[in-house]
Design a binder for these strands. Structure first.
Lengths: 308, 308
DNA sequence: TATTGTTTTATATTCCGCTTAAATACAACG
DNA sequence: CGTTGTATTTAAGCGGAATATAAAACAATA
């Protein structure tokens, strides 16, 4: 789509990321073509300086998503739906992305041992040491891997998908219903309304394959924002980590349409309960929501059959 | 205290750490003088190779804690109670320890801004960059600090002691009672018995100032091991993180003797309930235990006065 | 005067040789 | 044989210069 004509000098990772997030931001705002992108606002939004923002904007210009207005910055060039999907960073940062996924897959197919030296990773995946270190640090933040006391790294048992999935659900069954009952819980009504609307919209329209990604975003946003509303920093972080972990462990988001609709209905019910101040009810619904999404499709189908 | 006679060539951080942990390990085992320290066993225990273990043993020998038996390794030289308290690592690793504490104190006294560049830390604390980076990464694992998208690091709100303490207790009130009710919960009876005995012993004997440190260890061990018994990796990690966080936020462990005895009694009650399979009861007791230790001393004193 | 365009300054990363120290293999001892 | 003592191999940490890029200051424009 609208291929780049201008020559680009390999944007930094930050700039490529920002470019993506700017598009996402515009989408959330529902910005129309002609919308003026004010640099300072974007800086505040993403808490960076103007330099990387300008880099990101140039990038988006090269992609044809936004158009320059001399001495008046950039405006959105066309409906955001037509905006490019993926924006590539410079080779070495793409390399990091790839390595992350490669390691994940190697682990999930059990072709990587539980303990390994960073040098060994350099050799096996033919990567550069700094890249390996970045990826390991990233994984360490998700608690997927830990430094051993001496040399080497140890993959944690959480990365073994089978048992781990259950434990993750068990953990969420504790945290997520509880966070709705915190005395410090304050529903962000503004967000709740938007989230509800977006989910209802998806519920009503015909299902398209491309909607899978959007549902994924809506879903994670739902859980993450509720955690934020809990007013408890630890709970928020715990939920965020669970989300990051799941994203890591399955990047094959294949949704059963029926399940998506069910999930949306449950989300909306929870939001409505919270809106009415029935947090106890919302908490119970959340428990059910997580429990039901924990059962694999076969089980769910069987249950449906039973009740019918 | 049996000063070092032999010349020591600055042990590595790992070796100094291992030396400490070996002493701790011996204490837990209740090893008597003459106890033979088998290198391989220690390697397995701490998952390192023999090299750093041997370094640690040499260190302990220099401190007079263990005695060499030519071609038969080392044996414990004297009752562990007389073992040295602190074993110093090489200067730069001590530097890291100090920097960690310095930063914590600077944060807690609000002399450090919320956001800061790593270079700025290098200047302010007159430290070397690698040391600063190590400390920042360590703090990042505790979620005390996060990288900003561009340059610099941002201290998280969890490091503001006031509100943070409450949030931490709120979080623990959710997790710790719940973990005792997990279907996967399996009490490690061996550990439970030892823990119970150690706590009863402390309860019975006269209070000495030095006991504060021991109580701290028993206390964290109590919570951490129960988390381990939960069989849920996420809960275990969550509890461990809470412990690490608390250790960071207050390293002035000043215990009120009465509170310590109360805590021990509650611990023992919980262990007994679990031993009898009354996990529901244990869970309720745990909730009470955390709630009561969350109230500041004044409140507790007032409550006691009321009930009398 | 708010915003963009341009320049300067400061920060962070990377590369590479060198040093330290952890892992491993092997020999020797009881 | 299981264990310690010794030697060898391999991995990781560190310093300093060069580079990339983010932050900040300044100038120009509508």
């Amino acid at each position: 789509m609208a291929a780049a004509a201008k020559k680009i000098e390999t944007p930094s990772r930050l700039q490529a990321e920002l470019a993506q997030r700017i598009l996402q931001h515009l989408k959330q705002q529902g910005a129309a073509p002609g919308h003026h992108l004010v640099e300072q606002d974007l800086c505040a939004q993403f808490s960076v300086s103007r330099t990387p923002i300008r880099g990101a904007l140039k990038l988006l210009e090269a992609e044809g998503a936004i158009a320059p207005r001399p001495h008046r910055g950039f405006v959105l060039a066309r409906p955001i739906k037509e905006a490019p999907q993926a924006i590539l960073a410079k080779p070495q940062d793409e390399e990091a992305r790839r390595l992350f996924i490669d390691i994940a897959q190697a682990r999930n197919t059990e072709t990587l041992p539980d303990e390994i030296a960073q040098q060994e990773l350099v050799r096996r995946f033919d990567a550069k040491l700094p890249v390996v270190l970045r990826v390991l640090r990233q994984m360490a933040e998700l608690r997927l891997v830990e430094r051993k006391p001496g040399n080497g790294w140890a993959f944690s048992s959480a990365a073994q998908t089978g048992r781990a999935q259950n434990e993750s659900y068990a953990f969420r069954r504790i945290i997520e219903p509880a966070m709705l009952l915190q005395p410090s819980f304050r529903l962000d009504r503004d967000w709740a309304q938007k989230s509800r609307a977006a989910q209802m919209a998806m519920r009503r329209r015909r299902w398209r394959p491309a909607d899978a990604a959007e549902f994924h975003d809506l879903n994670t946003d739902f859980h993450e924002q509720l955690a934020r509303c809990s007013g408890n920093w630890h709970m928020q972080k715990a939920v965020q980590q669970q989300i990051a972990l799941r994203r890591f462990l399955n990047y094959n988001w294949e949704y059963d349409m029926a399940l998506v609709y069910e999930a949306i209905d449950e989300h909306v019910e929870i939001l409505d309960a919270l809106d009415g101040g029935w947090n106890e009810k919302a908490s119970a619904l959340m428990l059910h929501h997580i429990t039901s999404s924990a059962s694999p499709p076969e089980v769910r189908a069987a249950k449906r059959a039973e009740t019918v």
